[in-house]
Amino acid sequence: MIYTLCFVLFLVGLYGVTCKKNIVKIILGFLIMEHSVNLFLILLGWKKDGITPVLGKGMSSDMLVRNAVDPLPQAMVLILIVIGLGILALMVAFAIRLYQKYGTFDITEMNKLKH
């Protein structure tokens, strides 16, 4: 149920990427897909009544094995979020350059190799 909702969010982003004409809307659809994938990976590792995988005061490693949520997807997603920021900067740079070249954000107008 909860995974399906994540997938619906992914498909909304996919709709934005494939069906929108404005290049900023396409970037926003990409961001929505990214959010949904990150959330899905984190939710995959959740354990019922799970605790954060941090060894607190007076806790043993056995307690952590029994109760903590999965730390591996969290480590993946932590880097993934930061890389997403870099990719976004790249996409926005492309969008700004295209705007300077064509004077519009509409991708159906960007059909000339030389303007």
């Binding site: 900023v24 970037i27 926003l28 961001l31 990150n38 984190i42 939710l43 959740w46 799970g50 605790i51 954060t52 995988p53 903590a68 949520v69 969290q74 997603v77 932590l78 979020i81 930061v82 997403g84 920021l85 976004l88 900067a89 926005v92």
Partner: peptide, 21 residues
């Protein structure tokens, strides 16, 4: 869901995302 590190990173990155956009 027990991922406060991710939550804080996401919040900071979100602010930067809005600024870039």
């Amino acid at each position: 869901v027990g991922a406060p590190d991710i939550a804080s990173t996401q919040l900071v990155v979100e602010v930067l995302t809005i600024i870039i956009l």
